[in-house]
């Protein structure tokens, strides 16, 4: 891969995390436990889709306009998506929605906080814009984790179950591969290895406050960044891509 292709792929990875989580959260529209929480979740979904749009526009530019941001979002087969496995996990119940958001937002606060210093000025400016949104996502998810974890026996049970079920998808967030290494060398990408300790501390603090237990060490799932996804991804894409597949270039 030349340096352009590497940067293009980096944008897809970041954009896909935002796009796929945005799609997952959009599924909650009209299904929130109360009206206000419905709005909160779909607000976060829109933040995610906005971030994906910015990153895909940049990817399209890097690619010389060969494919538009919409092409990138809606017209790739499953194995070309580069998101982490965590964000494609289904909503299951409200506790899973919150646990997923807690894990990813705690990571993104650190990641985009670091990307703000990128030598690539466009990535740096996308990071500066998005970090404000992420801080709110983290606060929202942390507050709910504490509320549910330190709530009734049923809410404690469900929150702990979600925290445990999604734990195996968190290791992948900190993996470095050749694309990460090369962009780190050129001062564009983020060094994720030092982030894991800070992330664990943050999660530990929230879980203690929520009277929940940190999951034990276990085998960590991986593969999203290489395009190897869990069985949930195909279903998500078939819904997300339906319109562009059935009516290519549809306008309204």
């Amino acid at each position: 891969m030349n340096s352009k292709e590497i940067l293009y792929n980096y944008c897809l990875r970041l954009g896909d995390d935002a796009l796929i989580l945005g799609q997952r959260l959009s599924e909650l529209c009209s299904k929130g436990p109360i009206l206000e929480e419905d709005l909160a979740q779909t607000n976060i979904a829109l933040d995610m889709i906005g971030r994906a749009q910015a990153l895909f526009n940049y990817a399209s530019e890097i690619n010389g306009g060969k494919n538009t941001a919409d092409d990138i979002a809606y017209r790739r087969p499953e194995f070309q998506y580069r998101n982490h496995l965590l964000v494609e996990q289904p909503n299951e119940d409200f506790a899973h929605v919150i646990a997923r958001q807690l894990y990813i937002s705690a990571f993104e606060v650190l990641f985009y906080g670091s990307l703000e210093n990128s030598k690539d000025s466009i990535l740096a400016s996308i990071a500066s814009k998005t970090i404000k949104e992420i801080k709110y996502h983290l606060q929202h998810a942390s507050d709910w984790t504490v509320r549910l974890g330190d709530g009734t026996p049923e809410s404690t049970f469900k929150m702990q179950r979600a925290i445990n079920n999604l734990w195996m998808y968190t290791g992948e967030l900190f993996e470095m591969d050749s694309i990460d290494d090369q962009l780190l060398k050129s001062g564009i990408g983020v060094d994720k290895s030092p982030l894991i300790e800070k992330w664990r501390k943050q999660i530990q603090a929230t879980l203690s406050e929520a009277t929940l237990t940190m999951p034990e060490e276990m085998f960590m799932q991986s593969g999203g960044k290489q395009g190897v996804h869990t069985e949930h991804m195909g279903h998500l894409l078939s819904e997300m891509q339906y319109l562009q597949r059935a009516y290519p270039d549809a306008k309204w």
């Binding site: 109360i34 009206l35 206000e36 929480e37 709005l39 909160a40 607000n43 606060q139 929202h140 507050d143 509320r147």
Partner: peptide, 20 residues
């Protein structure tokens, strides 16, 4: 108005409902 269990949640819900 908004529904909320505590003041922190009330501010967040107000933010999400009325300042989008």
């Amino acid at each position: 108005n908004v529904h909320a269990t505590d003041k922190k949640m009330a501010v967040q819900n107000a933010r999400d409902t009325y300042t989008r």
